[in-house]
Design a protein around this nucleic acid. Sequence first.
RNA 1: GUGAUUGUAGCUCAGUUGGUUAGAGCGUCGGUCUGUGGAUCCGAAGGCCGCGGGUUCGAGUCCCGUCAGUCACCCCA
Length: 424
Amino acid sequence: MSSKITAPRGTQDLIPPHSAQWQALEQRIHALARRFGYGEVRTPLFEATELFVRGVGETTDIVEKEMYTFRDKGDRSMTLRPEWTAPVVRALLEHQLLAQGPQRLYYIGPIFRYERPQKGRYRQSHQFGVECTGYREPEADVEVISLAWELVRSYGISDAALKINSIGDAQCRPRYREALLEHFRPNVSQLSPEAQQRVERNPLRLLDSKEERDAPFVASAPRFEEFLCEPCREHFTALKADLDMLEIPYAVDPRIVRGLDYYTRTVFEITSNALGAQSAVCGGGRYDDLIASLGGPDVPAVGFALGMERFLMIVEAAGSEKPSARSGVQAIALGAQARATLLPIVAELRRLAEVPAFMDYEERKLLAHLKIADRNGARFALIVGEQELAAGEAVLRDLESRTDRHVPLGSPRVVAAALVETGL
RNA sequence: GUGAUUGUAGCUCAGUUGGUUAGAGCGUCGGUCUGUGGAUCCGAAGGCCGCGGGUUCGAGUCCCGUCAGUCACCCCA
């Protein structure tokens, strides 16, 4: 059976062939970010615990119960990165980058949260995200949203939906909060137990309730749009106009409130119903006060985070993945002398060709070797046995068309070059 | 942290009201085919029945605990 030691709960090994999908996604992300003019930022896997407590919010679930926190040998409290925004802002401040004007950064890598795993939720997961600092204008929101949407579009995912909302700023949010409390407080006893807790703790989240008995109260609740202050309203209106202009389909969803403390004005999500209970694959928004609250200058910012595990689940559900074509060459040596002949040729091929060169070193029958070539997905088989050695030419078999061709044996470099020349 | 559910071969799963040597398919390896592939047929290897305790003459099967997977709640990517 399996060995006693297994991967820690909520983590997983990434092995072929699945790892190839990850490589493809990562490559696409790097190319996409590049086209938008974003540079990559990499931060440590762990940070001072204090950074997340201050950056994410003391009363958030992340800080209250989901952090992987430990003490190092210097008795410092450290925490495995549970999200990227706080570390990126920390790096921005540490290297004084904000003094140089607007910054466009993207990141890609693991985050850690101590949670019970379920579909689309793991203790180690991976996020791609961007942070755009220095712009208060809604064009920056649109830039960030369109970057995320472009990734979804490039995979041809049809069941993804973009939802946007505005949750106001320090001016108008307290007013809306009050209005919500006035609306719910008189009916508190009729709400679900979960909702009752939210009334005092986080009234905005009441709008997000899944309980049927809360639905009528949620439906009749005041909408944030009516309470937005004038600057916030203008920002939101301009954002919607810009999205229309770029032909990015969206829906305004007043129930999108986001879980982290630091958002202001624009919030958005990209959801898919391929994900089970966790429908959000991407979430983000504007956080104009976060940088200042971490001790930096008063610089606005907007960004998003996209869950890569969830994204690949959507990609898979969309079923747009094509079966990978045969590629590469399987070197088949029959006998010790043939092996000695082929080995340097394979080595040369690995220097010259873009496609994989496979070789099996056991003494097998030709039939068995060809089966291995099939399993490897090789396009060609390069066969050398006693006959070929005697004749001075190898057999190159096209495993797709089932046709043979002869190639003269010579110095490994010349043979490999000839093979590459004729197109492997 | 709470709840539901599932742990039997590398993978997917059978396994009778508890009954003695533990089953299939796929995969792997070999043969069929002394040098031309995804097929067919034949054969082989591969199991502390998640782990620990209990009940019983006897436990893969029943009970308790524990660990792990899955899904959901809370919350989020």
